[in-house]
Design a protein around this nucleic acid. Structure first.
Length: 185
DNA sequence: GTACAGATTGAG
DNA sequence: TCAATCTGTACT
């Protein structure tokens, strides 16, 4: 099987393009001598500082979100609701706070952002990890082509606080074939 | 120092 | 429908 690790140049392009192309790619997580992996089937784009739903809205930098400003290909992970980790991958250039939230893999054990991190055993120790270099987590292209007609774009989830303009942006992308995983879509 | 909301989930 | 659970941020 063809299996190629995604390079820096994949991540440093425009965020919406990366968000769509991440669909169908595989995430590989090495724990000891075991590998945990799955296909990415749902993503969301966050384009700070103009995006009110982004943690980096208006160029805000805090100890929590500073990894969002790293060059494309780094992990930005944080805790929400006091109990769930969210895995984000930074995109575009350094100092540009843009990222893609990885929401789901093609497994029912990882069918949501919080469950995905639990499945991949991710936590704050992965903050700022470089997916282009890391030996414990990276992404692979296994040669699966995803056609635009297989991608569904919808509104992002759980960001109504950002107001109707940003909340209505269709920056959530998912593979048609896996729509059935989510009861509320 | 205190108050409060949140890029969710799973149970009821 | 709603509680669990805790960090970052904006106050005093």
């Amino acid at each position: 099987m063809k299996s190629e690790r995604l390079k820096r140049s994949f991540y440093t392009r425009s965020t919406l393009k990366v968000a769509k192309e991440l669909l169908g790619k595989y995430i590989i997580r090495k724990v000891g001598n075991k590998k945990i992996s799955g296909k990415i089937v749902e993503t969301e784009a966050y384009i700070g500082p103009k995006d009110k739903a982004s943690h980096a809205f208006l160029g805000k930098i805090t100890p929590r979100n500073k990894a969002e400003y790293l060059i494309g290909g780094h992990i930005y992970i944080y805790l929400v609701y006091g109990m769930h980790w969210q895995l984000n991958i930074t995109t575009y250039k350094a100092e540009k706070p843009e990222c893609v939230l990885i929401r789901a893999l093609d497994l029912k054990e990882a069918s949501g952002p919080g469950k995905l991190c639990k499945y991949l055993k991710l936590d704050k120790s992965f903050y700022g990890e470089d997916l282009a270099k890391s030996k414990i987590i990276w992404l692979e292209d296994r040669g699966e082509k995803v056609r635009p007609s297989q991608i569904i774009a919808t509104k992002r989830i759980g960001i109504d606080y950002a107001g109707p303009y940003w909340a209505s942006k269709k920056w959530r992308f998912l593979l048609k074939a896996f729509k059935k995983i989510w009861p509320n879509t």
